[in-house]
Design a protein around this nucleic acid. Structure first.
Lengths: 149, 149
DNA sequence: GCGCCAACATTGGCTCAACCAACAATCAGG
DNA sequence: CCTGATTGTTGGTTGAGCCAATGTTGGCGC
């Protein structure tokens, strides 16, 4: 990412797959750094955001909504429970399921993460106008929408 | 990535950092799968491409050009040497340095990787027109060009 | 009711990308 | 000559993204 030596090979620069990867790496660095300030990681934000938007859900449902593997959901919920941001309780209607619920502290935490991440977006897209940002988001959304092999 | 349960939280979908990350994940899956068919990984391609474009270089220079860490360059060059795609020889003018050179077999291998990756780009950007692909590349390039943090 | 398959939570593993620290050897500048 | 920077290398660490196995539970056909 340093990009000393001036240039990056033209073939690499032209490849959209690599380009997207470089931007994602930069974005992830910024995001991780911002979240680290609040003692959080990306999975924490993804889970809290999903819970806030859709309400309490089973761990499997959370996995489907966030694209996070079920086994990784377990660890993430553990960490969020340990910090009091989330509660895990058995579903009375289906004893296989745990119902995960956001606590008020979790909501507050999510709001802080929201604030931090909004700053990251501005930092990441600093060189684009508002119009260009919208177009970038639209293009990426369409790429994502098409069946990914 | 499954996106069952229909929806992804709107907050997550709207965040460019997450969007770019999702697209990069999809791209990496496609790339890894394509390269695996040739027994290669992304670092292999990045190194070979840099060597072909700029000619023989020291390992540190390769790291700067590709954004790959020096320590990871070591392992990658080892692998490429083992497969006869690259040669590592001491720099007579600076005994700290190794000069890495592509072999003819390496060039052939790179051409195969080129072909494989071109197919991946088409697959990844199937939902975009040629014009839109250019605009996406242009936007991503500008995001990358601005000082990342 | 019984049997079977699906879904769930959990554990424990794996690979890869992206780093970082330390080290010895070497080089370049003052 | 001495100091500081550069280089290759070793040996880590972290998180993301997976996958398989296990035991429990639900739902369904019969």
């Amino acid at each position: 990412m340093e990009d000393a030596e001036g240039t990056v090979p033209a073939r690499l620069r032209a490849l959209p797959s690599r380009l997207v990867n470089q931007v994602a790496t930069a974005a992830n660095r910024l995001v991780d750094r911002a979240l680290a300030g609040a003692g959080a990681r990306r999975y924490h934000f993804a889970l809290l955001a999903a819970l806030e938007e859709f309400g309490p859900a089973s761990q499997a449902a959370l996995g489907r909504r966030t694209g996070i593997d079920r086994s990784d959901i377990v660890a993430t919920v553990n960490e969020l429970v340990a910090r009091g941001f989330v509660e895990r309780s058995p579903d009375p209607g289906d004893r296989r399921r745990n119902i995960v619920t956001v606590t008020p502290e979790g909501v507050r935490h999510l709001q802080e993460l929201d604030r931090l991440l909004a700053g990251v977006q501005d930092e990441l897209l600093a060189s684009l106008s508002a119009d260009e940002r919208d177009r970038l988001v639209a293009l990426l959304t369409r790429v994502l929408a098409s069946p990914p092999g």
